[in-house]
Amino acid sequence: MAGVLPPEVEELFDAALVGELTVVGRKGRPITYPLIPLYDGQYVYLTSAVLFSKKLGHIKANPKVSISLSDPVAVPAANFARVTLQGDAEVIEDDTHEGWEELLPLWRAKEPVIDSFVKKRFAIPLFFERSIIRITPKRVLYWRGGDTEVDPQVFELEGVS
């Protein structure tokens, strides 16, 4: 089944090991966090340990976020391009202990070593108490070839849910 994102953008999200999540902080300031993005064809997911929960508070106060894929080293895609996805985020944390594990298959596909870390979760248990950040994409700005000196191609994704 085709995903909600344009294929060339999906390729980037499928490859991305790090993206830059920007949230709106107190006083309306943008704040950016590097995180690993996961994509299931409908939503973009990020997870955040409760140890680093500031961003979760910001998202709960203002769900409008963006995530950029900008670094060719961190996005090892065959057809590298730069992209910024804007959307509405929801923090899912009914079960911080195991809830995020439903994303393990997506995480494992990018970072197989995650399984060995999870097996050692007893050593750093608070790192594995995690909230899910689920982003519903609304708009994508796409810079072909990664060239940001030109206008981006804009994909409006209204109606996606």
């Binding site: 949230v23 709106v24 943008p30 976020v65 900008s70 810079w143 940001t148």
Partner: peptide
């Protein structure tokens, strides 16, 4: 990154 007129953060590298 900055917050656009529509309230969504915008980022460009």
């Amino acid at each position: 990154s900055w917050v656009g007129a529509d309230g969504y953060p915008m980022s460009v590298s």
